[in-house]
């Protein structure tokens, strides 16, 4: 379980970083509110994971000082594209936690997978990407 939680932590930290970049390129209050809420949610997941890994006496790899973005983020369109990619990635990091856990830990992991998938759908709708859903959120494509 520790390995999967560590991977989820890395994804949540990357998401927090990404939303810092995304926020700069959004202008409408709707977009900005969405990005702020998402960033706060990812911070809560990060804190949960740090606490859980500490309870399990597992050490997580330190987060990198910086991240290389998958493509240049220069405007709203590329910012929304990154937000979609970030949420898909977070969902993909939480899914492997499910088979590695039971009970309350699995329930929490499923809630986090679901939240990321729902946010990805919200970003797709804002970006007018169709379809806004996929059959297997969290399954690597």
């Amino acid at each position: 379980m520790n390995e999967q939680l560590g991977a989820a932590l890395a994804a949540e930290e990357a998401a927090i970083y990404a939303y810092g970049v995304i926020g700069v390129h959004l202008n409408s209050s709707g977009d900005i509110a969405e990005a702020r809420a998402a960033e706060q949610a990812h911070r809560r997941k990060r804190d949960y994971l740090v606490g859980r890994l500490s309870q399990l006496k597992a050490s997580a790899a330190p987060s990198p000082a910086g991240y290389e973005l998958p493509f240049p983020v220069t405007d709203r369109a590329t910012a929304l594209k990154l937000a979609i990619q970030v949420e898909d990635g977070v969902a993909q990091a939480w899914r492997p936690v499910l088979p590695a856990t039971e009970g309350a830990d699995r329930g929490t992991a499923l809630a986090h997978l679901t939240e990321a998938a729902v946010r990805a759908t919200r970003w797709r709708r804002l970006a007018e990407v169709s379809p806004a859903t996929m059959a297997w959120p969290g399954r690597p494509e």
Binding site: P99, L113, M134, A135, P137, R139
Partner: peptide, 19 residues
């Protein structure tokens, strides 16, 4: 071995409700 599949289905249904 079924947890991931059912988790993705649950998440997908949540995204449908959102959509």
């Amino acid at each position: 071995d079924r947890a991931g599949l059912l988790g993705s289905i649950a998440a997908c249904r949540a995204t449908h409700a959102e959509a």
